Amino acid sequence: MRLPREDGTLHDHHPRADPVRHHPGPPPRSRAVLAAAHVVADPNRTAAGTPAALDWDATLAFRRHLWSHGLGVAEAMDTAQRGMGLDWPTAAELIGRSAAEARAVGGRIVCGAGTDQLTAPARDLAEVVAAYEEQLAVVEDSGAQPVLMASRALAALARGPEDYAQVYGHLLRQSARPAVLHWLGPMFDPALTGYWGSADLGAATETFLDLVAAHPGKVDGVKVSFLDAGHEVALRRRLPDGVRCYTGDDFHYPELIDGDDHGSSHALLGVFDPLAPLAAEGVRRLDTGDHEGFRALLDPTVELARHLFRDPTRYYKTGVVLLAWLAGHQSHFTMVGGLQSARSLPHLARAYQLADGLGLFPDPGLARSRMASLLSVFGVSQ
């Protein structure tokens, strides 16, 4: 195949001929592993600036694919385009439908609760709390475990750490199940700059840890997405006993999940959407103490992950959905809000090349044919 480079030139890629077989299996035992799942748009009803229209059959089928490989599903998170096209009414329906599917197959599911139904700036903290409570009720009524997502509305309104402590403290006290706290870095969402009341990462971390310590038994774990392994390890070592650290670091996940003499991270990762079969097989190797085998499987995937999550990081979803289409999990490359246009053709071509090299496509011939059709739309003939 002739694939475009960023400099405008073309180069030859020789696609893999035979697939690499990854078989379904039970959930890993040594780590909790969740994939933040993307949504499949309905290509016949999708338009920028309109409420999200999903292909429900394909969206739910992808979640069954994740569960079949033993991974848990992190639903209605940023990978599902929360705050980037997926409106709250559709997210609420997604939570209900996915939680029902999880019960049917016995799969683990956690779901994001935030404040994105607020389409205008919040007037006060009470309005932020009410929005969180509305979404938390939907998650809890579905039977899923809640993930308290970072709130743009709270970030815009809060005057300091005490406002975060007030809002999150109220939510944790009333949550029926221990929640996961989600700290999303500004590289994923610039509107969250200065979260926890300070632009200084050290000061914000102290506020975050104080909140966790102040609510024993109410926090299942924390998910940190900063693409900063050193920060995550330091935070992980200071968490109270029984509180998990779920890595959200799509750059350093092999070393963080593998761990060190002081512990290891669990996982809640968007990159495990396309990497699900490899990720599950790798962590099952950790179950047997085979750290070298785990790294042998996961280390080679980091180049693809770093490519998908390159700056501007928030557009990583485009590459994730491309790979789902190429792998045959959906029939088209259309995203909610037209986000398939957020990355350049050379970026998408490189994602295909790296994924093909890893053996991520169950049918390499189908992936090649679909990639060739995309290239032809842009005038790159084969």
Rank of each mutant, 00 (worst) to 15 (best):
L54G: 06
A130D: 12
T46H: 05
G96R: 11
V40K: 01
A144L: 09
A100F: 03
G107V: 11
S98M: 06
G112A: 12
L66D: 12
V39W: 00
G106S: 08
I95Y: 00
A113E: 00
N44S: 15
N44W: 11
A32I: 09
A122R: 01
W88D: 02
E93Q: 14
V73F: 08
G112M: 09
V73L: 10
A32H: 07
W56F: 11
H38C: 13
L118Q: 09
E127Q: 15
A144R: 01
A52I: 10
E93P: 00
A41D: 01
H69G: 08
R123M: 12
R82M: 15
E140S: 08
V128D: 02
A47Q: 07
V128Q: 02
C111I: 00
E75G: 04
D124L: 04
S68W: 09
G83V: 10
H69Y: 15
I109C: 04
A91T: 11
L125G: 02
G143Y: 06
R45G: 07
G83Q: 07
A35L: 01
A76Y: 01
R123T: 13
A58H: 09
A99M: 04
A74M: 10
R63S: 14
T59H: 06
R31P: 06
G83S: 11
D55F: 04
L66M: 13
E133K: 08
L136H: 03
D141Q: 15
G112W: 05
D78F: 13
V40D: 00
L60P: 12
W56E: 13
D116A: 11
G83Y: 10
L66Q: 14
A32Q: 07
T79C: 07
G70V: 12
G70D: 07
G72K: 04
A48C: 02
A131F: 05
L94M: 03
S98F: 05
A104M: 09
A74E: 03
D141H: 14
D116T: 13
G112H: 06
A92V: 08
T115K: 06
D78E: 15
A91L: 10
T115M: 06
A104Q: 15
A47I: 01
D55M: 05
F62T: 11
A120W: 15
V138M: 05
M84D: 11
A37D: 14
A41R: 02
G85A: 05
G107A: 08
Y132R: 00
R82D: 06
I109W: 01
L71D: 09
N44K: 14
G106V: 12
V33P: 00
A126M: 03
G72N: 09
L136D: 04
V138Q: 05
G107Y: 10
E133H: 04
G49T: 03
A137P: 05
Q145A: 08
F62W: 15
S142K: 03
A99D: 08
W56C: 10
A126I: 02
E75D: 15
G107S: 10
D87C: 04
F62S: 10
A126Y: 01
A130P: 03
R108I: 07
T90A: 02
A36P: 00
A104C: 13
T90C: 01
H65I: 12
L94N: 00
A52R: 03
E140V: 10
A80S: 13
G72C: 11
